[in-house]
Write a protein that binds this DNA or RNA. Structure first.
Lengths: 269, 269
DNA sequence: GGCCGTGTTCCGCATAGAGAAACGCTGACA
DNA sequence: TGTCAGCGTTTCTCTATGCGGAACACGGCC
């Protein structure tokens, strides 16, 4: 016996945790879920999940479809994310610059930030091309196989880089960097050129370019990244885009309080 | 005695409910909250709120500031709203049309939907003017004093309209419609012209225009609305905008499966 | 240096929430 | 049209869970 639950922290609420995990069951591909489905996913009883969903529905975090009696996310979460966005500095400062970029290049551009050991898109502006890449706001991606991830990682501490390597570099496509040394070389290269590129490293046929964004502490906290089909994002095009992105990245960084040092690279104080 | 709590429904989780209410304490104006602040707002003990926040933080729904030990919303909610948006039909279908509008008129445009007895912004595209109106994604507004609210309400059932009146028409500015008859006349006018206008009815100096959006059931489920300072949104300008909005509204409605009837207004079946 | 005011931890008791199982619906199938 | 399997919902019972009060630790301010 004992508690079968995982290490029953006295400081957390298991019922709340279950509810949050239930919310996380919803994905872009599966936006509508039934009780049983969620119960199985979480290993909980149907009645428990039912109570969770009823409560979530009461507060507008999910919506019960009157026909199918299945659930989808509700508008309360929209409201919360609106609050985040209007207070996330990098978002506020970046938005217009990204809009300008899209109207000039007509390629989809994102703003990504570091969260734990992933990148998270905090802003996305779509191009008008019919060929779309499936990403969305809040989408998490690994650090080692995306241009935004590599850009951010390149400027983190050695400890952080080692930790990422220790956690493993899963192979997503034949192009994914899976060896530590190869990754380190790539990061070194990013530090010198100031931008990162991914050619089908996360998904076959999807290329991307990214540049770092720094805040007033001079730390790299995010990246501006353009993602698109390999057919459009050729090496030449990506280089051209990289130049523009670099000036956008610098502008956003400046607005976040970053000021460029005169010379003296790698000289603290 | 008895339970002091409100009617202790056997089917809801009070701890979860408290957590959801805690999340809702965060607003655009107050994006960073302390334990005590939340505890007071909800009438709960500090220990309870602390446990709630710890759990929320573990799942990334809030973030604990290491310096101040206060909390702000986390990126997990962004992720959820990204999922909603990529699956909310009205959002998907409307986005590009709104972008086009902004690039032509350079005024901020929103997509609003009906939720309970409020409108909720599910999309917002900002203009580049320095004078901004403070709204954000997920922002709720009353039905009787916004152009989007009145547009939507105009096409709801009489029961719904009566219920809105019964719930009261709070005066927000000197211009707010506060009398039932006046509101009904305004709604009638909206039904004939096909668009609604608000001149400082919600906030002094803020004007707006809106048109309805219908889905395949022919019900009005939302509105496209332009919001801006009175100085720019003159009567003449609003009329011009209304015309464009109407074609956008129709286009979105069509994409949601609405097809226009030949003649026969108000003739069901 | 004592004083608020935080956020955090501890603890014991009552109740809120977990699961098993019964219920009622709806849609598939023959 | 009858049967059945699957769903979401409800009920019930028991105990682990999560509640509040109080103690603790920090930190900024007169």
């Amino acid at each position: 016996m004992m508690q079968e639950q995982q290490a029953n922290d006295y400081r957390t609420l298991s019922s709340l945790k279950n509810a949050l995990l239930a919310l996380k069951c919803f994905t872009a591909d599966e936006p509508e879920l039934g009780i049983t489905q969620i119960a199985q996913a979480l290993g909980l009883s149907k009645s428990t999940v039912h109570r969770i969903m009823t409560t979530l529905a009461e507060e507008g975090f999910v919506r019960r479809d009157e026909q199918t009696h299945r659930y989808r996310l509700g508008l309360s979460v929209l409201s919360l994310s609106g609050i985040i966005m209007s207070n996330l500095e990098i978002y506020r400062e970046g938005q217009h610059l990204l809009e300008e970029f899209v109207s000039r290049f007509d390629e989809t551009v994102h703003l990504a930030v570091l969260e734990d050991y992933s990148t998270v898109y905090v802003s996305k502006l779509e191009c008008k091309h019919p060929v779309k890449i499936l990403t969305h706001l809040g989408k998490k991606n690994p650090l080692h196989c995306t241009s935004s991830g590599k850009t951010i990682l390149a400027f983190q501490s050695d400890d952080m880089i080692e930790e990422v390597i220790r956690r493993g570099l899963p192979q997503m496509t034949p192009n994914t960097i899976t060896h530590a040394e190869e990754l380190k070389a790539a990061l070194e290269n990013i530090r010198t050129t100031g931008y990162a590129i991914s050619r089908s490293e996360l998904r076959e046929g999807v290329h991307s370019v990214a540049v770092p964004v720094r805040d007033y502490t001079r730390q790299v906290i995010g990246a501006v990244t353009v993602v698109g089909p390999a057919s459009r994002l050729t090496d030449g095009k990506m280089k051209a885009i990289a130049r523009t992105l670099q000036s956008i990245g610098k502008e956003i960084s400046n607005r976040l309080g970053y000021y460029e040092r005169r010379q003296s690279i790698g000289n603290p104080t």
